[in-house]
């Protein structure tokens, strides 16, 4: 029983950053942007979260800094891809590398001792905590985990139930049509990127103030790419993304669990192999649909 609870908790922790970034990717996916900059935005968020938390000794400022940092990244994306009309793919790659370079450069200059970084607190839900099993699973998680759950609902509502969501999807479906109906598609695209920035910033904050304390070089470690795969696999649906992120998170937790029998390098591969398997299943399903 303890093992199962441990696995589920590990799953939630690993799924959270992927899910948050993928939700951001989902919004830009509906807006019709080929956005591959989640990795860079997340990494930038992680660095600025640690920075804010260290300088102001407060995790609230840390989260604010993370969101601001990721928003700056999003603004750079907007400048190049929307304003200068540069290829979105090249912009994304360039931005990811800029983020990697910049955070590496800054972290070598600013010494942030791990002990002086204030992490985001865990939330213990009174009452529920005492309930066996259920309490252990539902209570005691990092604040961001609960925010993520909220974000899934909000993004789902935003995309499918609001006027903004309709315009968002129209922007991805037929940009010219949206423009001729009097709504600026570019404005929708810009706003979707900003939303993506906020969510990726939060994901970054969770990495450097939740999973571990402190920033290490390149700590996003491909999570942004996995979240991109998640978005593609479910064609952007926020609820689908939640499920697929949980599966990825589960394989990550499983990897840690397998560490007793396998060398750590192999267990670390598990999430990436799981992504490949998921892509394989997806393409098989597509093929069946195509042939039928």
């Amino acid at each position: 029983m303890k093992i199962i609870i441990g696995l589920i908790n590990g799953m939630l922790t690993s799924a959270t950053p992927i899910l948050l970034a993928a939700l951001g990717g989902s919004v830009t996916y509906y807006a019709g942007i080929f956005n591959i900059a989640m990795e860079g935005m997340m990494l930038g968020g992680a660095f600025f979260a640690a920075l804010g938390s260290y300088y102001f000794q407060s995790w609230v400022v840390g989260i604010l800094f993370a969101i601001l940092g990721a928003l700056v990244m999003a603004l750079i994306f907007i400048l190049f891809a929307v304003v200068l009309k540069m290829d979105e793919f090249i912009t994304g790659i360039g931005l990811n590398l800029l983020s990697l370079g910049l955070t590496t450069y800054l972290v070598r200059q600013i010494d942030m001792p791990v002990t002086e970084i204030v992490p985001i607190p865990r939330i213990h839900i009174p009452g529920l905590e005492q309930v066996p099993v259920v309490g252990e699973i539902l209570s005691g998680h990092n604040l961001v985990v609960y925010l993520t759950l909220l974000a899934v609902i909000i993004i789902h509502y935003l995309v499918f139930k609001t006027r903004y969501g309709l315009r968002l999807r129209a922007s991805g479906y037929n940009r010219t049509c949206l423009d001729t109906s009097g709504v600026s598609a570019n404005r929708i695209r810009v706003s979707s990127l900003l939303i993506c920035g906020v969510l990726c910033g939060l994901a970054g904050a969770f990495l450097s103030l939740g999973v571990v304390e402190g920033f290490t070089q390149g700590m996003s470690a491909g999570k942004g790419w996995i979240s991109l795969a998640a978005v593609i696999l479910v064609s952007g649906s926020p609820v689908g993304i939640a499920f697929i992120s949980l599966i990825f998170g589960f394989t990550d937790g499983l990897g840690l669990f397998l560490q007793q029998d396998l060398p750590p390098q192999f267990t670390a591969m598990v999430p990436y192999i799981a992504t490949l398997v998921a892509l394989f299943v997806y393409s098989m399903r597509l093929k069946k649909k195509f042939n039928a």
Partner: peptide
């Protein structure tokens, strides 16, 4: 490490 930043900036600016 500044060179890493410079390289990414060169890519973005030259292509744009």
């Amino acid at each position: 490490e500044l060179i890493q930043v410079l390289q990414a900036v060169i890519v973005l600016i030259v292509v744009a």
